[in-house]
Nucleic acid binder design. Structure first.
Length: 445
DNA sequence: CTTAGGG
DNA sequence: CCCTAAG
């Protein structure tokens, strides 16, 4: 049975791809991690991307070129995976904003000064349920999820081949775009193609090979196939989460299952998936998509901000008793807040979807509602701080207020401009005077 | 489907 | 963050 064979092989490949992805890039910034996972599907063709990413992770090569590449790819992925079609209409520059925080030196400085960034990302990748055998990054702890080791019962030679190729790839990061590894991979893909010639599933997979086409026009792939919608309730995931733990412990004879459980391991919020207009990937591939999305969501750039007290409890995640109900809360980063403010000053208060699409397009999380909530909180915070003035700003308030003054000021001004319903229960009678004048863009620093 | 408001 | 009612 060709199909069966194909299924098995592809699931094997999936595991190994993930493995390589994990061990290959010692991500420093969470954003890049996210991008990495988003790129996961196109990895076969975009090994050259690894070079860019790698250089980025070294923190010295923040060149615009790499960012542009990243941005392009990200856009592609974003469009393909999330918003469907319309988001791509010539707004590249705005999308580019999404990567501000990547090349924003201030942010970088912050992350570095925090010092635990690397560790954070490492631990996160662990909690993400990826394979625990990480080569880079110095993560030696073994995960609680022993799923899908490279040797996971490859009963077909293709699996071995794939793994070897991946291994070669990992060993030669310096010259990624050519070489045996690439050839091997494409060979493998061709093999798959031969096996599944004519099958829609294969079509879905092999669309990776046409990465360029996908970038330039995402339409075909979007139209490619429509897939059944995923089960979109959180309790479903919780349920599968429980099941997955059992399955992982017993044994993973089927790679598909183990991979799936790994997805469920961290996951959160199926809603984002549910919103996808047309699932263009096959069952198997949708697993990959699912994985990537969930990883990207489950691997927040939580790092910092707000208050440094809570985010530290990222690893207290697996309380045996506490189970779930752990909110999918993700800390808002300072760049995000800045973007939020920018977006509000651009589009006003009511248009959360616009803000989301143009300023947070690279964030799969952060629904418009989330953005609105954040704005609400920001208003509350700023007005609260505004009370006791700038006198105590150098004191313990500093710990309580990680927001820089400039953003606070901007929030305040915006709060003056746009009357947010009942957030400000204060006076503020003279609002409209200086409001409209500053509407365009504020550069207060 | 998006927004607003409340939990 | 999550849920729900209303446009």
């Amino acid at each position: 049975m060709d199909r069966q064979e194909y299924l098995r092989r592809h699931s094997n490949m999936k595991c190994q791809q993930v493995q390589v992805d994990e061990s290959f890039v010692p991500v420093l910034k969470d954003e890049e991690m996210e991008v990495e996972h988003l790129l996961e599907e196109h990895r076969n063709d975009h090994i050259s991307m690894d070079g860019s990413l790698d250089s980025h992770t070294t923190l010295n090569g923040m060149d615009d070129l790499g960012l542009e590449v990243l941005d392009g790819i990200l856009d592609d992925v974003e469009i393909n995976d999330l918003d469907g079609t319309d988001a791509f209409s010539g707004e590249c520059d705005k999308y580019f904003l999404d990567f501000d925080f990547v090349d924003n030196p201030e942010v970088l400085g912050y992350g570095l000064s925090k010092g635990s960034l690397l560790q954070n990302s490492s631990s996160e990748s662990h909690s993400s349920g990826f394979s625990g055998s990480s080569i880079v990054g110095g993560v030696s702890e073994s995960t609680k999820v022993p799923f899908a080791q490279p040797e996971c019962k490859n009963d077909s030679p293709d699996g071995t081949t794939t793994y070897e190729s991946c291994d070669a790839l990992r060993n030669n990061p310096s010259r990624p775009s050519n070489g045996d590894s690439m050839y091997a991979i494409s060979l493998d893909m061709k093999h798959l193609l031969e096996l599944n010639n004519g099958h829609p599933l294969a079509d879905g997979i092999l669309s990776f090979e046409n990465e360029k086409d996908a970038v330039e026009e995402c339409q075909p792939s979007a139209l490619r196939e429509k897939r059944f919608r995923k089960p979109t309730k959180r309790y479903i995931e919780e349920f599968s989460n429980l099941r997955s733990k059992e399955k992982v412990q017993t044994s993973a004879t089927k790679n598909k299952n183990s991979s799936l459980s790994s997805c469920d391991e961290l996951n959160v919020r199926p809603k984002a998936l549910g919103k996808i207009p047309g699932e263009k990937y096959s069952n198997e591939n949708s697993d990959v998509t699912l994985h990537a999305l969930k990883v990207s969501r489950g691997q927040p750039k939580k790092k910092k901000l707000e208050n440094d007290k809570e985010p530290l409890s990222s690893e207290s995640e697996d309380e045996p008793k506490r189970k779930d109900r752990r909110k999918n809360q993700k800390m808002w980063t300072l760049p995000e807040v800045k973007k939020l403010v920018d977006g509000i000053s651009e589009y006003g208060i009511g248009r959360w979807t616009n803000i989301k699409r143009f300023f947070f397009s690279s964030s799969t999380y952060r629904t418009p509602t989330d953005i609105r909530d954040k704005w609400r909180n920001l208003l509350r915070a700023s007005s609260a701080q505004k009370s006791y003035d700038k006198e105590a700003e150098q004191n313990d308030e500093l710990a309580l207020r990680p927001l820089p003054l400039d953003v606070v000021h901007r929030v305040r001004e915006l709060a003056k401009i746009h009357p947010y319903p009942r957030a400000r229960g204060s006076k503020k009678s003279s609002v409209s005077s200086l409001g409209k004048r500053n509407l365009q863009r504020k550069r207060c620093s």
